[in-house]
Amino acid sequence: MDVFMKGLSKAKEGVVAAAEKTKQGVAEAAGKTKEGVLYVGSKTKEGVVHGVATVAEKTKEQVTNVGGAVVTGVTAVAQKTVEGAGSIAAATGFVKKDQLGKNEEGAPQEGILEDMPVDPDNEAYEMPSEEGYQDYEPEA
């Protein structure tokens, strides 16, 4: 019985440690998101679009440190934060509304985080759909 109880105690310690790591990862992701939003706020009209992409990228980098179902929630929060940063930029006159959601080359930025393969159960990952990809044929 002692062996059984000791095993359960060790398992509990492992769960607590994993929860603490997840909590730490979420806190880091939130900190990076805040950094990115402050970065966007300090940019001029020309830099705002690039700044919004930076927020998304920093958040995406930190999301990889967070495991399990938390990833889905962090990704949703990050996307809403990026959308909010863009709205703030438009409201303050840093950028025109028609410039939001495009990178410096004018290509749409939507789907940055949505296409990231995420499995809350950590069982399997699927690649994003290939609808947006084109076949590449090298020139002879």
Rank of each mutant, 00 (worst) to 15 (best):
E57K: 08
A78I: 12
E131N: 10
E126N: 12
G132I: 13
P108A: 04
A27I: 15
S42L: 13
Q109A: 02
T81W: 05
A91R: 05
I112A: 03
V3D: 01
D98Q: 06
T22Q: 00
V37N: 00
T22D: 00
A124H: 09
V15T: 01
K32E: 00
A29T: 05
K45A: 10
D135I: 12
N122A: 04
S87V: 14
E105P: 04
D119P: 11
D98A: 04
E114K: 11
T92N: 07
T81D: 01
V49M: 14
A76S: 07
E61D: 03
M1N: 00
V77P: 02
A56R: 08
E104L: 08
V3W: 02
K45P: 02
P120M: 08
E83N: 08
Y136K: 09
A107N: 09
G67F: 05
Q109Y: 10
V55A: 05
K60G: 03
G67I: 13
A30D: 00
V48C: 06
V49L: 11
A78M: 14
Q109L: 05
D119R: 01
V49H: 14
V3R: 15
E13G: 04
M127T: 05
E110H: 03
E131K: 07
K6H: 02
I112T: 07
V55T: 02
V40M: 08
E13L: 01
A19I: 04
P108V: 08
T92P: 04
K96C: 15
E13C: 07
S129Y: 12
F4P: 00
F94G: 04
V3N: 03
Y136P: 08
A30V: 14
V74A: 09
V71I: 15
M5D: 00
K96F: 15
E126M: 09
T64N: 10
A140Q: 05
L38H: 03
V63Q: 01
V66K: 03
E61L: 08
E28Q: 06
M5R: 14
A78C: 07
T92R: 06
K96P: 05
A90T: 10
K6T: 03
K12P: 00
V70S: 01
A11C: 15
L113Q: 15
E46Y: 07
K6F: 02
E46H: 05
E28A: 07
P120H: 11
K96H: 08
E130N: 11
D98L: 12
K34P: 00
V118N: 12
M5Q: 00
E28C: 05
E110A: 10
K21H: 03
D119E: 11
E105H: 01
G31D: 07
T54S: 08
I112N: 08
D98C: 14
Y39H: 05
V37W: 15
Q109K: 14
G36S: 14
A27R: 06
E130T: 05
G93T: 04
A19C: 04
T33Y: 15
V70T: 02
E110S: 07
G68E: 12
G36F: 09
T44C: 13
V95W: 14
E130S: 04
G67D: 01
E20Q: 08
A85W: 14
A27E: 02
P117R: 04
E61F: 02
A56M: 14
I112P: 11
H50M: 14
N65K: 06
V70G: 01
V26C: 12
V48T: 02
K34C: 07
S129A: 06
G132Q: 10
H50G: 04
K80H: 07
A27Q: 15
T72G: 11
F4D: 01
S42R: 09
A19S: 02
E46C: 06
K12R: 13
Y133P: 12
Y133S: 03
T59A: 11
A56F: 15
V55M: 14
H50I: 03
N103E: 06
D115V: 11
D98G: 13
P128F: 02
G51C: 15
A78W: 15
G67L: 14
Q79E: 04
A30C: 07
P138W: 11
I88Y: 02
G86R: 07
G84R: 11
